[in-house]
């Protein structure tokens, strides 16, 4: 898709929320010198703005007065892959999975810290704005060389099965973003396995035994409870 940058290089963020207090908070959390902010107060305005203003990122509240947020995600996804981060008070796993499966890139439960929000925005923007994917993932002592299919921890090479590697590669490609169980299963094992959470759980357990120094306190692959997994990123 064509990326248009006309705001002096600042990424354009469309904030969709109807709470004045939240808007005010986001204005101060996302300073104007870094981001160009646009606002929409309901679902229909959001859809119109997404098409007209061509933002680089949408921060979307789920509880909108006219449309449900998940519906907004679905409609945007019909024509665009532009990144969407959900900001919602809905903390139930079902809601998160529904939004993520509908196409949201990340999900942040309100209330959240400014640092957390900025980190998520950075991760998502980096992924969508970069032209070519990074060939090497590094975090802490873990290094994944996607080009050479090599995984090392503290310089020591770790032997992975092809499935374990596929799983790790997928997470590395979306480093810092949450992937739902369903998304992982579909991409690594295929659509037929979309409900086979056992397969994922066993593979994940094995993968962690190999890459995590203390498997019961994972440092790299974080379990997003009831939602999926996230590979930490710098």
């Amino acid at each position: 898709m064509q990326k248009v940058k006309t705001d002096g290089g600042r990424p354009r963020i469309l904030v969709v929320d109807d709470e004045a207090a939240i808007l005010r908070f986001l204005k101060s959390a996302l300073p104007g010198e870094e981001y160009s902010l646009h606002f929409a107060e309901n679902g229909h305005a959001a859809l119109a703005a997404a098409a007209a203003a061509r933002p680089d990122l949408v921060l979307l509240d789920l509880g909108l007065p006219d449309l449900d947020g998940v519906e907004v995600i679905r409609r945007i996804r019909e024509w665009s892959t532009l990144p969407i981060i959900v900001l919602s008070v809905r903390d139930r796993e079902d809601d998160k999975v529904a939004a993520l499966d509908a196409g949201a890139d990340d999900y942040l439960v309100k209330p959240f810290g400014v640092a957390e929000l900025q980190a998520r925005i950075r991760v998502v923007l980096r992924r969508s704005l970069q032209q070519a994917p990074e060939p090497v993932y590094r975090f802490d002592e873990l290094e994944i060389d996607l080009q050479r299919r090599k995984v090392t921890r503290a310089g020591t090479e770790i032997q992975l099965t092809p499935t374990e590697y596929d799983l790790l590669r997928l997470l590395a490609n979306h480093a810092g973003m949450v992937l739902t169980h369903g998304q992982i299963l579909k991409k690594v094992w295929g659509s037929a396995y979309a409900d086979q959470q056992n397969v994922l759980r066993v593979t994940m357990s094995n993968l962690r035994q190999k890459i995590e120094p203390v498997p019961s306190r994972p440092r790299y692959i974080i379990t997003e409870l009831g939602v999926g997994y996230r590979l930490k990123s710098a």
Binding site: M204, S205, S216
Partner: peptide
């Protein structure tokens, strides 16, 4: 079916900010 190790790990991850220097034996 749930991996018990993952369960403990998740609980500790949630508490990570409060753990500070406390030692937790698993």
């Amino acid at each position: 079916p749930t991996d018990v190790q993952d369960l403990v790990g998740c609980a500790l991850a949630v508490l990570e900010p409060h753990l500070g220097r406390r030692s937790v034996e698993i």
